[in-house]
Nucleic acid binder design. Structure first.
Lengths: 180, 180
DNA sequence: AGTTAGTATCTAAGCACTTAAAGATTAAGT
DNA sequence: ACTTAATCTTTAAGTGCTTAGATACTAACT
């Protein structure tokens, strides 16, 4: 893992500038005609997402899963018994293309974690359902995943976490509203 | 674009529950033995990132770029004249593997937007430098990109944006600290 | 000088997506 | 009933990454 420690800033000299702050400052110098302030926000979203993905990917490996397969199993599990959803429903929850869902379901079916069941009423529809093995696995994996996420939040107090979630929701709404 | 409007929630009945809030609630019902509250935060990070990527991808298309190629050109541009960085430096700024950077640079070189220059002192090192075409393109693209980002932030007031950036920095620090 | 270790980049194989289009089925309009 | 349109899933081709390992070079030690 090339980035394991190489890019952790040396913070020994007080509150050092973060990488993202440096990017903003560089843009101010190079292009004083522009206002680069949104980078302070979106750059951090980007970096937090990458850091987070790297950590949870490692957590899922213990269960033979990756973020993509975990995502599908978790959607089926939290839907409740009989742990069954259609491809269209799964695509909407995961913000994924239909082809992407087909790919994920192929892998999970090969691994024996889901089965596909053609709908008898509407024969276009295919239901994907957790197998007993899939149910057992996701029930273990979600517990480890939440433990891990709590660990990642150890440095953020509860009030800040709540506020961060609320502000992120406002940001998502703003992005959707701006999407012409 | 399949998700253009299909997944925008109907908010006509007041402040409806967001998708992420529903996920948390479903987990509380299905697994009352677990505390799913971190999902409210990380789920939103994930969704905001996906929404954001979708919008900027469309913006970059106008310049024949994608987020990956824009990222490299922007790093070179904000570094200042002579707009030159090594692969290792670029990988660190973008949190990317060395192979990923090689791939990005191959594409940019084929497009005539950068040139590769072997270092004369240390012949292991390859500098990548903006061509005049690359410089002209990124100078146009960064202006459009920042305009676009300001548009995406229209629904978030400045104080909230600042606070969101600060909280995201705290979250990144917490993730890095927990990464054992 | 010669060996060993470390570093910078690139190659190869594989993976998880994407868009575009096709196939199968259902719904709507006449 | 018949045509047209809409919907659900899958296939095909291509893209941008990943890890693992190869290659080329430099630095450190003896």
């Amino acid at each position: 893992m090339a980035h394991q420690d190489a890019d952790v800033p040396d913070d020994s000299a007080g509150s050092a500038l973060s990488d993202v702050d440096r990017f903003v400052q560089q843009w101010r110098e190079q292009r004083p005609d522009l206002d680069p302030s949104p980078i302070a926000l979106f750059g951090r979203v980007h970096r937090v997402y990458l850091r987070y993905q790297a950590v949870i990917t490692k957590c899922f490996e213990d269960f033979g899963l990756n973020p993509a397969s975990f995502d599908v199993l978790a959607a089926l599990r939290r839907a409740g018994a009989p742990y069954r959803m259609t491809g269209t429903e799964l695509a909407a929850e995961s913000l994924l293309s239909s082809a992407g869902i087909t790919f994920r379901l192929d892998k999970l079916e090969q691994a024996g974690l889901i089965t596909r069941i053609r709908d008898t009423q509407d024969r276009r529809v295919v239901h994907s359902q957790l197998t007993p093995e899939g149910l057992a696995l996701i029930d273990e994996a979600i517990a480890a995943h939440l433990d891990n996420e709590h660990r990642l939040l150890a440095g953020v107090d509860d009030a800040d976490a709540d506020q961060l979630a609320a502000l992120l929701q406002r940001l998502e709404d703003s992005i959707l509203a701006a999407r012409q």
